[in-house]
Design a protein around this nucleic acid. Sequence first.
DNA 1: GTGAAAGCGCTAACAT
DNA 2: ATGTTAGCGCTTTCAC
Lengths: 343, 343
Amino acid sequence: MKSKKKEVTIYDIARQFNLSPSTVSRALNNHPAISDKTKKRILAYAKKLGYQANKFASALSKGQTNTIGVIVQKLDSQFISSALAGMEQVAQVAGFNMIISQSLEMEAKEKSNAETMFNSRVDGLIVSLASDTVDLSHFKPFIAKNIPLIFFDRISEDFSCPVIVIDNHKAGYEATSHLINQGCKRIVHISGNQLRNVYAERFSGYKKALKKASIAFKKELIFFTRLDIQAGIETAEEVLKMKPLPDGIFAANDLCAVACIQRLKKAGVRIPEDIAVVGFNNDPISEFIEPNLSTVNYPSRLMGETAVKMLIELMRSKTAVNKKSKILIHSELIVRESSIKKK
Amino acid sequence: MKSKKKEVTIYDIARQFNLSPSTVSRALNNHPAISDKTKKRILAYAKKLGYQANKFASALSKGQTNTIGVIVQKLDSQFISSALAGMEQVAQVAGFNMIISQSLEMEAKEKSNAETMFNSRVDGLIVSLASDTVDLSHFKPFIAKNIPLIFFDRISEDFSCPVIVIDNHKAGYEATSHLINQGCKRIVHISGNQLRNVYAERFSGYKKALKKASIAFKKELIFFTRLDIQAGIETAEEVLKMKPLPDGIFAANDLCAVACIQRLKKAGVRIPEDIAVVGFNNDPISEFIEPNLSTVNYPSRLMGETAVKMLIELMRSKTAVNKKSKILIHSELIVRESSIKKK
DNA sequence: GTGAAAGCGCTAACAT
DNA sequence: ATGTTAGCGCTTTCAC
């Protein structure tokens, strides 16, 4: 069933000037072989008629779609939405559409998303992995078909494709070292699924910092959680049972840190005097909680922009597609009140 | 230029079984006229070959794209990202792709987004308006072409299309009345661009509440702002200059309210004793600020889900396209510490 | 500089 | 229940 209203096509324009559709097509695409005069005539008339290029006909014919696919773990997170905002802006300027879908942290959904993206013939794909994804075979079709693929933030290095990350190990190391410098000796670490580089590396940074300071690693101080508000509350409750209380907490994201702080405060724990806390992400919330949360600043928007820029570059230079590069985005520890022990 | 790798098409499958492409097409689309046996054979073989339906060929042929367009003011807001999460989920289940773009609160960009969506032949469009959009002509092509259009949250009633909103007037009235009941007599209202229903109606609710309580409306207590963190801080600074200090603040969103509270506290103002505050949206942050922020709960995710459900319904029943309906989603005042004056 | 013609892969009357 | 056929609108060799 076609839509009732007839679309204006290149044939309509061709007829008007007694030209061939090919000429019109070329003119519309600014092909060098067409004379400026005909180009102008055609463009003007096309505009007058309200001609809209039919992307599907073009996609079908050219085998490319001008569409970028993005798969993220979830849309409603500060980090993700701001990365997406960056991506969308760059994509829009470059004339690409963006199809976005979320895995809701589930491998199965991520797989089905990837399949949809593949069927939609996206010209390139940007991915941040779900927390529990183990098998990555759903990305193979893209590789096989030479469709540029980029991982950002939650990456996999199994494919020879570019990745965009911060140095999570270093950030974890610095956050923990900072706590140690404040005199902390029993530091709780709240982490996420160790399948994901971001959490595994922040954890390894934590361990390295302890080691450097000759503080024994204690398994019972580590919590693997979903890093949401609920996890923050539950971890706080576990912490409250500990004797002696830990004197520091390094949480792998701000939301969880903030929820944890709130619960601890409710139990009468003083932050940072009793327990110093450092989060991760520099979400806006970190500046509103009391005390203000020390955290790692993490340029989400820039990462999104960079991802799309790279992807577009890859799409343009078909040759470099399989280049395995790693873009390291700068991050930094921001020290606020929540981690400064009064001497 | 086609991609090097030959795609598997329905012709390949047809050849295998000595069937016609149409039969294969029908089988793949689960057409009732095809026998179960052939369906099974075809499905199995298609799967084996790794067949991927070509959406562009299908779109070109059918004149529809299975794609929903969404234009929002910005991606990195709690409300929007959570509405999008809801939309995406419903869309995905129903087999639709979602193209998302942001206007960044600019009419010009909204226009260009709409044009892109139109060119992309989206089957339906969901919009939340930019704050400064006056002219709405960029949506006319959709109406003209009978493409379902839905506004949510920041709506326009200029078109005969469905809209999804909460009762902003009522919410504003309740928030303000609550402050009045707490004994407030000089209530500041921080609002946004009055072009947008959400802000204009919350404001009108505010005025109505004053009137009902026989409190004179004072222009100098009203601030029209961008409702971001900066606006919260600046408004707080204006408030601090007032003599006497107001005794209540009703802000049209939480982020702004929270920033305002923080600035006021820094100046020694006690919340709620000196100034009681109510926000709007029930962002997570409202439960982390101290004192916890009273606010209006606003089911963003549900609104997103509803929008897509309605849109899909409209797309299915071509007839009802122009039906002008208004879905009112329930909202409610949540009273927390920030607005309870000790008696 | 422009045209003719074939084809991208799928769908949907209309036939059988 | 399945086949025939004619597009959908655009691109792109290969001619001229």
